[in-house]
């Protein structure tokens, strides 16, 4: 049996950019309102540089890029199911958000060159506070905020792709 996926790349890029923008907006709103200290741009950018300002700018750009790349993945899933709708996107968002919180965040200290190990104190090269399980170190409302932002991301892609 042969199986080929046809992908609407333009639509995935466009709505991926938009959905990433909304996700970033929701997370930044949560930060501004004091609900969470989770900052994807800062965490990503500080992998590359220890200059705060540059880390934010670079991290923001990389985060947008990652968001668009994930949109391609979402689009591939939609194409494989030959179906895209808001709740399907939302479900993917739930999975995506939970994966980030439960799998990715706890292993981040091992991947991030400037993040302190959860077992040892900070060192001159590793000073960033690790997120911990479900990123709870960054505030008790971080899991809910992150999940909501990713569900919104998925719903937008499911609706408009």
């Amino acid at each position: 049996m042969t199986f080929a996926l046809t992908l609407n790349v333009g639509s995935a890029l466009l709505w991926g950019l938009f959905a990433t923008g909304v996700l970033t907006l929701l997370m930044a709103t949560g930060q501004g309102l004091g609900w969470s200290r989770m900052s994807f741009p800062f965490m990503i950018g500080s992998m590359v540089t220890s200059h705060r300002g540059r880390a934010m700018a670079l991290g923001f750009t990389l985060h947008l890029g990652l968001g668009i790349a994930f949109a391609i993945l979402y689009a591939l899933v939609f194409e494989s199911w030959k179906w895209a709708t808001w709740w399907l996107g939302g479900l993917l968002g739930v999975f995506h958000g939970l994966f980030v919180l439960i799998v990715f965040m706890p292993m981040l200290p091992d991947l991030h060159p400037r993040m302190a190990s959860k077992h040892h104190g900070p060192t001159p090269t590793r000073q960033l506070e690790p997120p911990g399980f479900m990123a709870l170190n960054y505030g008790g409302r971080t899991p809910a905020l992150t999940l909501i932002a990713h569900v919104a991301y998925g719903i937008l892609l499911g609706t408009f792709y």
Partner: peptide
């Protein structure tokens, strides 16, 4: 003190 972002842990000793 840090606000809105993951904190930077302070170093002691020689640093």
């Amino acid at each position: 003190f840090d606000e809105g972002e993951p904190a930077v842990l302070p170093l002691l000793g020689d640093h």
